[in-house]
Structures are given as structure tokens and as C-alpha cells.
Write a protein that binds this DNA or RNA. Structure first.
Length: 571
RNA sequence: CGGGGCGUGGCUCAGCCUGGUUAGAGCGCCUGGUUCGGGACCAGGAGGCCGGUGGUUCAAAUCCACUCGCCCCGACCA
């Protein structure tokens, strides 16, 4: 392609609305332009790159026997009503009406539509297993679109669905996807971790997320370099840092201490001269009809997800001040588990075996010392705490890291949710109707691009992996007006095109600095400078990422470029 | 939905508080010329009903009200 003929609107300055690196660079490099909040135009460079990502996805999905479909984004409401998700999705789903007033919606994902196809057509176990996928536009009315292409209202997703007769079959389909996803992300040149994920409101037994560590992310992941342990923060478990001081010995009875005006853990800890690890924190939470007191070590945070799992109730809220006073007889700063009646107490397992700690006294401005779980109050132990910085791996005690990440893919054992709600059954070997077991598996196509930009950029711009860069190499005659350089560049361009290389020829009549800056900005992995060294028969091959430059003879340049590209290819 | 910020040529911003010539700058763009190894230089030029509506005023980019849009923090997020 001749750069002079292309629409690559690069910007010298960062547009103000862009905050995260990938957003800034995709705008500056002329990949994308914004149309509205969370709605973007993908220009030529973005489209080239996204198509390459999609092609890798397609190849790997086909490799595991996936069959590509293309389903409507515009869905009748009925399908979603059948599964119950028409209500569950709430405001996150775009809804509209046709001219006759019939309700329609824009698909956020396609479990319903796929299941609707399957239940009409799959009749026998002999037709299973199936893996169906599509690469298609999804719509989500995000409450807050942000971070450029990372959180948008319209995006491209590869979504696949597996249909199996039995759980063992689902295990196989799931594993096939896991392997395919690793190949896809490897081929896209990403560094990622696959983590155990919380299955969420979707139900289902097992799920893993593929995450890329970046400060632009919104999800937290806990990993251990030594053991390879990794899990979403929502689900992660760990060994907490040990208490900063030993518990007082002996079988002591609770005793009130006057703590005027000391409400927060920090205040009480400072006032009493006792580390926060010796305090118990009591939270009053209302889940559905039931009120709970959750007890945690002073320095620990409640994991909302774990609390939800412990109570089996998906929704909960902190109790209102009046409720706390009514139930426990004190305000938030002085609550504790001792003497509590009619409220279920859940206590975090980190407090198992602890003795003679400090808690609120359920009396304003008073705390209790010498409180021992199991003796001074009865409670159910549960894992309730969120993993914190400094915690260690639960089995080995190896150090853990908490990473900020962006989710690029998710594989999920759905189970029978849709088969049951939508009636997807087949006849088994014995002629008995059996529900089909499903899996669902997604990849955010734009997020793969964003993650690559976040991962690989420097002060001059992006530096994409060769497999997903819009071009593999850019040819830069250094002095535009020089006919000799131009002839050599023309020739090399023809050779590379002939060889099937994705080559961008910067034939613009611009000063070299501008061409270099632009090439660096748009992230093409290799650049060939055709300049003064041509006099001695050489051109320079520059690696965008490493900035290494090697002189190669013009005569063999095309071959040298091809082997450099091949060597850089992640797959 | 709560809190904060911003809307002025394509981009980045000044001007607004304290109303008053023809609304500015840098970058980009167009023409001609000189240049050519990391965002060149000279000369000339085009381009803006100041987000919208209504109000106050002799007079509004500037003050007031409403409204729309965008960004950030939080809530939310299969």
C-alpha cells in the first residue's frame, strides 16, 4: 500500500478525552475515531488489525471443530423472555420496538439464539457434540463506557457454544476451548494469565478468564509466580499475613473498655495501642429477608462475592444506622458479635483459633477485650475475606501478587441452564429424552488489540506483535526527492508485495523525521530505511520494539525482511 | 444514578471572573519556493453563527436559566 494514498489521520497531540494509553495511541495513530460515548469508528488501520485477530481466532476455532455461524444482533424479546434474561439483564440491554410495537432487543451474547437453533434441530445424541461459533457485534448499554475501546457499548465478540450429551463431554469441549484460547492469545503475541473465575449469576460450575495485566484494567487477579496459582480476586484464597501481636493467653472473660469517640479500626487500634490484627471488625449486612453480622479481622476486607456465596443470596446491602441500633443497640463504631441474638453471625476463617481479641461492645463508646470466637459467641466460619497485598499462597506460603488486568476471554461451563429453561433435549442411547449440557466461550476482539497496545508501547507510539499489526513492514526512503532512493524503494516494494508481505510504502513527500515518527506511532514492527547507505548497496532494517538496526544488502533485502518477520512471529 | 470537570477553526488551548473594536495563538491544512537521517524553513492563504435554546442588556464567547454532548471518580458491570 502506498502511504500517500491511505487515510491514516495521525495526530501530533493527545486528544484530551483519552486517558488510558491504548485509547490515546489508537486515536493518535489514526486507528479509531469516536462517534459517541462508547461507540467508535474503526478506520483502516484498526480494521486491518482486527481482521488479522479475527482470522487467528477463526483458524483456531476451526481447528477444534468449531463451525462458524452468523446470527442476528437484532433479537425478538421472546427468546430472552424464555430464558428469563430479558428481565435479568435490566438496563444493560438495548431495547427497541418495531413499527407494530413488538419488543425487540440487541443481543449482548447469544446463548438464547443458539439454544433456540439447537432445540429445533438437535434430536439425537448421535448429533453431539457440536461447537458453534460466530464473530459478531454485541451491544451492551454500559452504565459508564470508558477507557477507549476497553469498555464500550458496541463491540465485536467471538462467541462459541458447545453442546454435549453429558458432563464428561462438556469437559472435553471446555478443554478444547482452553487450549484453543491459549493458542489464539499466544499467536496474538500477548502475555496473559488464565485464572479461576467466579461463575457469577450465570450459574454453572467452572469458568476461567484470560486476563492481561495492565494498569488500564478494571479486574483484579491474584497470581503466584512460584506455584502458578491464579484466580480472580473475587474468588482467590490466600494465607493472611500473621497477626502483628500474639493473642493474650488464657481463658479470659470479656471485659468492657471505655473508648470514647473511637469508631474506626484505626482509631481503636491507636487508642488502645493494639495492632489492628488483634481487633475484630463487625459488619451488619442485610441479604434479602435475613440480617447477618459478618466478623473479620480488623485489617481485612469483606469479599462481597464470598459473602454472597456464604449466604446463597445474590443481593445484599449494609444495614441502615437505625437497623443497627435496633438490632445491636449501638452505632456502627461500637458493634460486635458478643451477646447478639436473632441475627446470624458469619465469621471469617482467618479468625479460627484466635483468642482474647477486641471487638465492639454493642454499646456506644465501649469495646470489649478478651473476646474469643466459639466461646464468647457462636458463629459459622466461612471464607469471607478478600485477598490482600502481602498475603501468601495458601498451600505453600509463596508470595502472591495482585494484578490489575483486563479480561480478553472467558470460558464457561454453562451446564443445563438454557437447556432447561428453553427445552433443549435429545434422545440418548436408550431413547430417553435428556437435556443437553452446554458451554459458552467468549473473546473480546477489540480488547485483544487494546491489550496489545497497552502491553507494547513506548513514548513514540505502539509496537504491535507482527501477527496482528496492520502492516508487517514499512519502507521509508529517507530523502523523498532522491530518485535513486526512490527507485530502490520501488523495486523493494514490488519484491515484497510479490512475496506476499504486508508492506506499507511511505512514499509521501515529507521530511524523514515525520516519516519516522509516524511509522513508530502506528506500530509497524519493522521499518526499512533506504538512505545514504544505499551508495554502498545497503539498507537498514529497524526493529520497532527493540530499536535494533541492521544493515542488509539491497539485493537480498526482501529475503532478509521476510525472515525477520518470520522470526518475530509469535506462532 | 450521585460527585467533579470540559464544550471556542481539524488537534491542543488562551480569551469568560470584571459584557463593548474585526475572537486569538501553536500545530495541522492549501499555494509557491528552499529543504531532506527523528515531528524543517521562508512568503502568502483558507478555515470559527464560541454545543443548543431561552433570558438579562443599548450591547453576550463572556452574566442568568434550561438543555444536549463528552471525559473522570463512585455506584453498576452476562
Amino acid at each position: 500500500m502506498l502511504w500517500s494514498r491511505l487515510f491514516i489521520p495521525t495526530l501530533r497531540e493527545n486528544p484530551t478525552e483519552a486517558e488510558v494509553v491504548s485509547h490515546q495511541l489508537l486515536l493518535r495513530a489514526g486507528y479509531i475515531r469516536q462517534l459517541g460515548a462508547g461507540i467508535y469508528n474503526y478506520l483502516y488501520l484498526a480494521q486491518r488489525s482486527l481482521l488479522k485477530i479475527q482470522e487467528i481466532v477463526r483458524q483456531e476455532m476451526d481447528q477444534i471443530g468449531g463451525q462458524e455461524f452468523y446470527l442476528p444482533a437484532l433479537n425478538p424479546a421472546e427468546v430472552w423472555q424464555e430464558s428469563g434474561r430479558y428481565d435479568v439483564m435490566g438496563d444493560n440491554m438495548f431495547r427497541l420496538k418495531d413499527r407494530f410495537g413488538r419488543p425487540l432487543c440487541l443481543g449482548m451474547t447469544h446463548e438464547e439464539v443458539m439454544t433456540a437453533i439447537a432445540r429445533g434441530e438437535l434430536r439425537s445424541y448421535k448429533q453431539l457434540p457440536q461447537i458453534w461459533y460466530q464473530i459478531q457485534t454485541k451491544f451492551r448499554d454500559e452504565p459508564r463506557p470508558k477507557s477507549g475501546l476497553l469498555r464500550v457499548r458496541q463491540f465485536i465478540m467471538k462467541d462459541s457454544y458447545s453442546f454435549d450429551l453429558a458432563p464428561e463431554g462438556l469437559d472435553v469441549s471446555y478443554e478444547k476451548h482452553r487450549v484453543a484460547y491459549c493458542r489464539i492469545f499466544d499467536r496474538c503475541g500477548l502475555e496473559y494469565v488464565a485464572v479461576e473465575a467466579h461463575s457469577g449469576a450465570m450459574g454453572g460450575s467452572q469458568s476461567q478468564e484470560f486476563m492481561v495485566a495492565t494498569s488500564a484494567g478494571e479486574d483484579y487477579v491474584v497470581t503466584c509466580r512460584q506455584t502458578g496459582y491464579s484466580a480472580n480476586l473475587e474468588k482467590a484464597v490466600s494465607r493472611p499475613v500473621p497477626p502483628a501481636a500474639p493473642d493474650p493467653e488464657g481463658d479470659l472473660a470479656p471485659e468492657e473498655i471505655h473508648t470514647p469517640g473511637q469508631k474506626t479500626i484505626e482509631e481503636v487500634s491507636a487508642f488502645l495501642g493494639v495492632p489492628s490484627t488483634s481487633l475484630m471488625k463487625s459488619l451488619v449486612l442485610v441479604a434479602g429477608e435475613t440480617t447477618y453480622v459478618a466478623v473479620l479481622r480488623g485489617d481485612h476486607q469483606l469479599s462481597e462475592t464470598k459473602f454472597q456465596s456464604a449466604t446463597g443470596c445474590p443481593e445484599f446491602r449494609p444495614a441502615h444506622p437505625e437497623e443497627m441500633r435496633q438490632l445491636l443497640g449501638a452505632d456502627a463504631g461500637s458493634l460486635g458479635p458478643v451477646g447478639v441474638k436473632g441475627v446470624k453471625i458469619l465469621i471469617d476463617s482467618a479468625l479460627e483459633g484466635r483468642r482474647n481479641m477486641i471487638s465492639g461492645a454493642n454499646k456506644d463508646d465501649y469495646h470489649l477485650r478478651n473476646v474469643t470466637p466459639g466461646e464468647d459467641f457462636q458463629a459459622e466460619f466461612h471464607d469471607l475475606r478478600q485477598v490482600a497485598e502481602g498475603d501468601t499462597e495458601i498451600e505453600t506460603g509463596a508470595p502472591l501478587e495482585i494484578l490489575k488486568t483486563v479480561e480478553i476471554g472467558h470460558i464457561f461451563k454453562l451446564g443445563y441452564k438454557y437447556s432447561h429453561s428453553m427445552g433443549l433435549n435429545v434422545l440418548d442411547h436408550n431413547g430417553v429424552e435428556t437435556p443437553v449440557i452446554m458451554g459458552s466461550y467468549g473473546i473480546g476482539i477489540e480488547r485483544v488489540l487494546c491489550a496489545a497496545v497497552e502491553l507494547y508501547s513506548d513514548g513514540n507510539g505502539m509496537s504491535l506483535p507482527v501477527s496482528i499489526a496492520p502492516f508487517e513492514v514499512v519502507l521509508t526512503p529517507v530523502k523523498s526527492a532522491d530518485a535513486t532512493l526512490r527507485e530502490a524503494a520501488d523495486k523493494l516494494y514490488a519484491e515484497l508485495k510479490q512475496a506476499g508481505v504486508d508492506v506499507l510504502y511511505d512514499d509521501r513527500d515529507l521530511s524523514p523525521g515525520v516519516k519516522f515518527k509516524d511509522a513508530d506511532l502506528i506500530g509497524v514492527p519493522f521499518r526499512v530505511n533506504i538512505g545514504k547507505k544505499l551508495a554502498s548497496g545497503m539498507v537498514e532494517l529497524v526493529n520497532r520494539r527493540t530499536k535494533e538496526s541492521t544493515d542488509v544488502p539491497v539485493a537480498g533485502a526482501a529475503a532478509a525482511i521476510q525472515s525477520a518477520i518470520a522470526a518475530a512471529r509469535p506462532d
